[in-house]
Design a binder for these strands. Sequence first.
DNA 1: GGCAGTGTCAAATAAAAATTGACAGATGTC
DNA 2: GACATCTGTCAATTTTTATTTGACACTGCC
Lengths: 106, 106
Amino acid sequence: MPREYKVRTKPAMQPPHPGAILRLDVVPALRISIAQAARELGVSRQLLHGILAEKLPVSAEMAVRLGKWCGNDAHLWIALQRDYDLWRAERKLASRISGIPTHEAV
Amino acid sequence: MPREYKVRTKPAMQPPHPGAILRLDVVPALRISIAQAARELGVSRQLLHGILAEKLPVSAEMAVRLGKWCGNDAHLWIALQRDYDLWRAERKLASRISGIPTHEAV
DNA sequence: GGCAGTGTCAAATAAAAATTGACAGATGTC
DNA sequence: GACATCTGTCAATTTTTATTTGACACTGCC
């Protein structure tokens, strides 16, 4: 009787949305209202709300604003977003990528 | 007579567009036509041309395709693109960014 | 001459990013 | 109680980005 194995190719762990870091760590630490933060960042209140609710992405420009605003490199924010995007894209394309051949010569 | 100093805050070196890596390294190494590559990747020929010409970005989905196609992690491609995007965003927002206050408490 | 490829263009679509205006509800304060 | 400010969410809209399609002139090759 051949045994079945489940092959795990990827950790399949969902990376955090940058909004989660902002919501759970940054905003509480700064003790600032969302409305005020949006004003300081120079974006609409709704955009910031959307990011905090993990419904809108941190764009490159937003990452630059956040970097200046909380004094840490913009790379942090865009890296978080990028990992999140990649994770979603992998799942979205899962069926289609199997049709793409792999060239090992690189 | 007070002397003037030029302050360099950032390396200001433009990161490469992922299209440059594809065009200079990957495609020559694989010895494949652009048209054929586009077919294998499942995207339009013009989109691939645009990326190779550094006029169109490597999206998250495109990074996944490229990762599968040339056997290296999709992270490489999206990291290249995001560094490029960030570099452009920093320059685009340079004037507006100075108006954003910095909170050091993070 | 016909086939495959190249690089670029314009037009069209589709999808994503961001703004504006509105709403009901919470909380504080004078 | 009325005012101001904030909250979270909604819908409509605008702007921007990503991608496709179709076309064009040109090149190289059997």
